[in-house]
Design a binder for these strands. Structure first.
Lengths: 216, 216
DNA sequence: CAAGAGTGACAGGACGCCCTGTCAGAAGGT
DNA sequence: ACCTTCTGACAGGGCGTCCTGTCACTCTTG
């Protein structure tokens, strides 16, 4: 919704007005580029534990003025939501792709999914930090984070049913899934904060075996 | 450290000054009572998702002026730390007491511990909310919350080793413990936010069976 | 009763953030 | 060259918090 209001027919036909291109980009391209820069700046500032996220700081980091922030987002929270959603879709894509590429063996599928998730966090810790740790801090973000965790818990429960049969009640499966997802979140959080001397591979192994043990 | 600076020898001997008692309480008793009122107000305001915690609000809730806040705490964060620590010690006392009262059967001990924790949260949701949810929001509180979770994870791992033998590497035990504790935290968080239709008893059952399955 | 400590209400400055508005200069079309 | 749009820098009002200081009032002791 935001982003395409723009200037609104800048160059009327008979008039002299320029077509809207600037520095080789059309108006839409420029606003998209600014939006991308703002999102990048947002995740950057947000992931820094030392400085609280604020519109001022994000704009300063992006090299843009507050005015352009309002061009793409109505408020700071809206930008934060966009960041969290982007990370969430990336996590889902990577994990499902990894599971599908792992074949049919249940243990292999689980391990591949966990490995993909941990790999993403290790590769770009900022994403893990904002989606898991910082999103829990902002009251406006909490419901969304909770929904995402429950979504992944549901996926985990569904996979478990497919893999190991449906001898477990559905509600219990959801609880177990949430327990697992929440545990993974805490594990990654501890690792991100440096309080864990374990290697990513150890995280993957521990989480995988726990998941398999829980659903056996 | 805070709390005993006070007025410092209010009534010098030869002088007329009152001895420091007021409304039937000595000076130390009064500051202690104010501190207790402030702590209660802090947990009350902090647990309310609608209003952000602030010194002003806490003092207003306690019926005291900001001046008395500084009498007991140097900053807002110091009060928050005190609240979290109080909840943490209460959790530890209750869970260990419940486990000890449950006898020697491993499953019974685990179930009793989990039951005690869930029971505490159900009985006073404010405590669960501030210690688990809100403490993760304040950057100054996060290290303490993380340390507490790891402490409980350590306890869980230790108990598992005692109960089920030590065929597992120590590091893996810690990881499994953290996974379990983090999962419990997320479970309780979801329940506190009302997004879970499960009963407390179901939470206890799910968590207990997961723990037992993980350590078998 | 008189004096002094304890207490509560309130005012006001400093600070940081949100948000809007203005203005000069750069980039593009005709 | 001229005009228009786009852009970056900056100022300032509004708001809420933190924190200190002042003043009247209550309670206790001699």
């Amino acid at each position: 919704m935001a982003g395409q209001t723009g200037t609104g027919q800048a160059g009327r036909s008979g008039r002299s007005g320029p077509s809207g291109t600037y520095r080789g980009m059309t108006a839409a391209e420029r606003t998209a580029e600014r939006r991308a820069r703002l999102l990048e700046a947002t995740i950057d500032v947000w992931a820094d534990p030392a400085t609280p996220v604020t519109m001022t700081r994000v704009c300063q980091r992006a090299g843009l003025t507050e005015r352009y922030f309002y061009e793409s987002f109505r408020s700071l929270d809206e930008a934060l939501v966009a960041v969290v959603d982007a990370v969430a879709t990336e996590v889902e894509q990577r994990t499902t792709a990894a599971a599908d590429a792992a074949g049919d063996d249940p243990a292999a599928r689980v391990r591949a999914s966990v490995e993909a998730f941990v790999g993403l966090v290790v590769e770009d810790p900022r994403k893990g930090r904002v989606a898991i740790v910082e999103a829990a801090a902002d009251p406006a973000l909490r419901p969304r984070r909770a929904a995402l965790l429950r979504h992944f818990a549901h996926l985990a429960a569904e996979e478990a049913r497919e893999l190991y049969g449906r001898d477990r009640a559905v509600a219990d499966g959801e609880l177990a899934g949430l327990l697992f997802v929440g545990g993974m979140a805490e594990l990654v959080t501890a690792w991100l904060d440096g309080g864990l001397e374990a290697t990513p591979a150890q995280l993957v192994t521990a989480a995988t075996s726990a998941y398999i043990a829980m659903h056996r």
